[in-house]
Design a protein around this nucleic acid. Structure first.
Lengths: 205, 205, 205, 205
DNA sequence: AATGAATGAGCCTTCATTCAT
DNA sequence: CATGAATGAAGGCTCATTCAT
C-alpha cells in the first residue's frame, strides 16, 4: 500500500548556518501545509517559501514525508513535555479538581500550536510511521489510567482501562469538533466549564 | 488557495447501463482510495479498476474531486437517513434510555461502512466543498440539542447548545479513538456500556 | 551496482496511430543516441526530436534504458536474421571460399545500420540486460565453431572452440578498429582481401 | 554538440600532501567508475570515497571529465611505456618469434590494469578529447607497420599499412571479445598459443 | 456513448559547481 | 589549502485531462 520512503533527516546540521536553514525549511513546511494541505504541498514550494534552494532542502530531507515527519517529531516532543508536567500535578488532586486540571491540560495542547496540531492530526495521510502523532494520545490515556487506578476509592470508575480511553478520546473529539465547528468557542469559559462537568460527573459521579 | 473545480456529476445516468457504469466507478473510487489514499489515487487507476475507459469516467465525472464528492454525497445521504430514523425514536425516550439509544445510533454509523467513513473523514484533504462530511455531525448536534431542549425538565443540562456539541463530539471522538487504537473494542459491550454511562451521568447526572 | 529497472515496453500498440508513435520514438532514440551519446540522451530530448509529448513516450517505454533495449532488440533481430542466412550458405563451402563468405557476412553487418551498430556496441553502458547485443557475437561464434567442426578434415584448425572465438572476435575488432580509425577503408577491396587472407591462412593455412 | 570544458588539472601538486590527495582522488575515480559507471559517478561521491571534501576535489580538477581525462592520461602513459619497451625487443626478432612477442605484449596491457582498461575503452562516452585512449592503438599500429616494413623480406606481407592495422585490431578485438565472453580464458595458454598461430600464419604463412 | 492515444504542466530529485568561512 | 553549505539547471516521471476516432 505504501512505498517505504526514508523519513529521517539526511544529516545533522553542524554549523549555525545549516541549523538556520533547517529551521526555515520546517517553518515553511508548517506554513505551506496549513495553506494548501499535504497533497498540494510540494517540496519546491516549501523551498521557495523557506527562501532556500531546492537543493538545500534535499540536502537535509529526503522528501516531503520526511519534512512532515520532522515537524511531527518536534510537535510531539513539545506536547509530550507539556503533558507530562501537567499530569505530574494532576496526580495529587482529588477527582473533582483533577477533572478541571485535565480539561485545562487538553485544551492547552491547542495553545502550543493549534493549527499545526490539527494539521498533523487531520490532514496528514496516515502513511506508515507518521502514526507517531497518536503517540501523544496513547500517553494521555496511559497517564489517565494511572490516575484512575490510584484514585479508585474516590471515584465511581470501575474500569479504568476503558474509562481512560473514553475520557481522552472524548476530550480530544470535543477539542477538534469545536475547532471544526467554531474555533472561537475554545476560549469560552462556558464551554470549558461544561467539559469539566462532563468529566467530573463521569469520574466523580 | 484552491482552484475551483466542478465537483458535480456531468450527467444523470438515465439508462441502466449508465447507472451501472457510474456505480462501478464509485465502487472503484472507494477501493482505490482505501488502497492507496487520496493522493496516489489516480483517475486512470480508478478507471482501470472500474473496468471502464478513462474517457467514460470523464463522461460522468469532471475530475478526481468530483469522484470523491459523489462518494461523500452517497455516504452522507445514507448516514443521514439512518440517523434521522434513530432520532425519531429517541425523541420519545427519557434521558436514561435516550443515552443508550444515542450511543447505539452513533456506533451504527460504523456499521454502514466503517472503512469508507474513516476514509472520508480522515483522509480526504479538506479542500473546498468536501466539508460536507461534517454535515452529518452538524445534523447530529442539531437533533441532540432539540432533544435536550424539549427534555430540559428531566435533565441536568442547562446549556443545551454547548451540551449537544460536547456529547456528539465526544462520542465521535471516542468512536474514532477506539477505531485508531483497537477497532475490536468497538464491538465490546463493556465499552458501549461505559459510553452509555458517560452520557447518562452527564445528562441525567 | 545497477538498480534493476524495467526495460520492457509498457503496452503493445494496437492502433496504427500508436505504432507510428512508437516508431517515431525509436527513430528519435537512435538519432539522439548518435548525436549526443547515451549519457546526454534524455527522455525529454528524445520525445522532442520524435515530435511526441513526453507523456506519450512514457506511455510506451518506462525509461531511457527501455528505449535503448527496444532499439537493441530490433537491431539484434535484423542482424541475426541476416547472419543466419549467410551461414546457411557458408556451411557448404570449403575453407578457402568460406573465409571470403565469412568476411563478407561480417562486413555486411555494417551495411544494415553501421552507425547504430557501433553505437549499440560501444556506447551503451553494459548495464544489465543490454548485454543482449553480445548475443549476435555469440551466435556468430557458435555457427563458426559448427563450421570448423564439420570441416575439420579440410582445415588446419585443431581446436574449433578457441579458433571460432578468435576468428569472430578478430573480425569484429578489425571492423570496429577500421571504423574508428578511418571508416572509408571499410569499402576498400584491398582491405577486405587482406581480411580474407588473414582468415584463410589461419584455417586453411 | 559538446560543451567544451576544461579537462586539464588546475594545478600541479607540488607538495607531497597534494600529490597524495590527487592520487586518492584518481583512485576513487577509478573505483567509483568501476562500481557505478560514468553516468552515475558523481563528483560528490568520488570526493567522499576519496575521503576528501568536494571543495578539495575541485581545487585540483575542474570537473568530472577532467577526472576521467587524468585517469586516461595516466593509463595511456603507462601502457605506452610498456608497449614501447616491448617493441624495442620485437624489432630484432624474425616474424616467427615476433608473433609471440607481439601477442604477449598485447595481452600484457590487460595485466597493467585490466578493469581500468576495459572501463576506459568501453564505458567512457566518446565525448571530445577522451579519444586519447585510441592513442595507444595508433601507436601499436605504427610500430607494427614499422616492423613489417623492415622485415618485408622474411614475411608474406605485401601491404604493411593494411596488415598492421588488421593485426592490431584483430588482437585488440580478441582481447576484449574474450574478456566479455569469459575473462578466464585470457590466462589460458591454449588460447595465447592459438593467437600466436593466427598471427604467425598471417605474417609468416 | 465508449475508447484510449496524446498531451504537458508540474512534481520529485540529482548533481556539477561555487563560494563564504 | 580545506571544508561543506548552498545553489539551481536539468532530467525523470506521473497523472489529470482532452479529443479524435
Amino acid at each position: 500500500m505504501a512505498r517505504r520512503v526514508r523519513t529521517t533527516p539526511r544529516k545533522n546540521p553542524k554549523q549555525d548556518r545549516s541549523r538556520a536553514t533547517v529551521d526555515a525549511i520546517l517553518e515553511a513546511t508548517a506554513r505551506v501545509l496549513a495553506e494548501v494541505g499535504y497533497e498540494r504541498a510540494s517540496t519546491n514550494r516549501i523551498a521557495r517559501v523557506a527562501g532556500v534552494s531546492i537543493g538545500s532542502l534535499y540536502q537535509y530531507f529526503p522528501g516531503k514525508e520526511a519534512l512532515v515527519a520532522a515537524l511531527v517529531e518536534r510537535h510531539v516532543d513539545r506536547v509530550t513535555t507539556l503533558l507530562d508536567h501537567a499530569f505530574d500535578r494532576i496526580e495529587e488532586l482529588p477527582p473533582r479538581h483533577a477533572a478541571r486540571a485535565l480539561v485545562t491540560a487538553v485544551l492547552s495542547v491547542q495553545v502550543i500550536d493549534a493549527d499545526l496540531h490539527r494539521l498533523l492530526v487531520e490532514q496528514i495521510p496516515r502513511v506508515g510511521r507518521l502514526q507517531r502523532v497518536t503517540h501523544i494520545e496513547r500517553r494521555f490515556v496511559e497517564r489517565t489510567r494511572g490516575y484512575l487506578q490510584s484514585h479508585r476509592r474516590e471515584s465511581t470508575i470501575r474500569n479504568p482501562d476503558v474509562a481512560a480511553q473514553l475520557i481522552i478520546y472524548a476530550l480530544h473529539g470535543i477539542l477538534f469538533g469545536l475547532a471544526r465547528a467554531d474555533p472561537a468557542q475554545l476560549g469560552d469559559n462556558a464551554v470549558s466549564d461544561e467539559m469539566v462537568a462532563l468529566v467530573t460527573r463521569y469520574i466523580a459521579g
